[in-house]
């Protein structure tokens, strides 16, 4: 009985509700998260049409970079010629661990027309606070130093593809 209830709850939980909220709701979010850790990727792959050749691991690694400090952020994000997706994430945030690789995959598909920066909000709290991050994962899209778009929580591959396409103006 208990198991059935749990399964139903996961099913009705829309994927973009998965995020780590601060404040009291955090408990709810993370408890439902832990049970759905395994089910969500399955469900996503079940829903998403399978994609032609998987991007190789090596190219994935080059897709994103970790922001080192404020200067680095200015140089490689604000002053970037390319549009940049900034993935604000945290070690303790489960959904971030799902979104990160998915976003890298979506960025890799654009073959160098968009960059991706990763910001650990505990290491670079000031940046996260400055950009109004409240819950993680938060992804902001920047072009010419301006924030042009943003979203909070998890998205599936299709949603990410269209988000990235919009950012690069496709």
């Amino acid at each position: 009985m208990a198991h059935r209830f749990l399964a139903r709850r996961i099913w009705t939980l829309s994927v973009n509700e998965l995020r780590c909220l601060p404040s009291s709701t955090a408990t709810v979010a993370s408890s439902s998260f832990s049970t759905s850790l395994h089910s969500v990727p399955n469900r996503a792959s079940f829903l998403a049409p399978s994609r032609s050749p998987a991007v190789s691991h090596a190219s994935l690694r080059r897709v994103s970079f970790n922001v080192q400090d404020n200067e680095d952020f200015t140089e490689r994000v604000i002053n970037s010629d390319l549009p940049v997706l900034v993935d604000f994430h945290a070690q303790w945030c489960g959904p971030c661990k799902i979104l990160g690789p998915r976003l890298e995959k979506a960025v890799a598909k654009k073959k160098g027309r968009v960059a991706m920066a990763k910001v650990d909000i505990d290491d670079h709290t000031d940046l996260a606070i400055e950009y109004g991050v409240s819950a993680v994962p938060t992804v902001i899209a920047m072009r010419g130093g301006d924030v042009v778009d943003r979203f909070v929580g998890i998205k599936d591959d299709d949603q990410l593809d269209s988000f990235v396409s919009k950012v690069i103006g496709q």
Partner: peptide, 18 residues
């Protein structure tokens, strides 16, 4: 346990900003 604490730390930081 420490992941949960991490989320609380962040929550406090955000509420100070807000």
């Amino acid at each position: 346990v420490n992941n949960y604490i991490g989320s609380l730390n962040w929550g406090y930081r955000v509420s100070l900003r807000d």
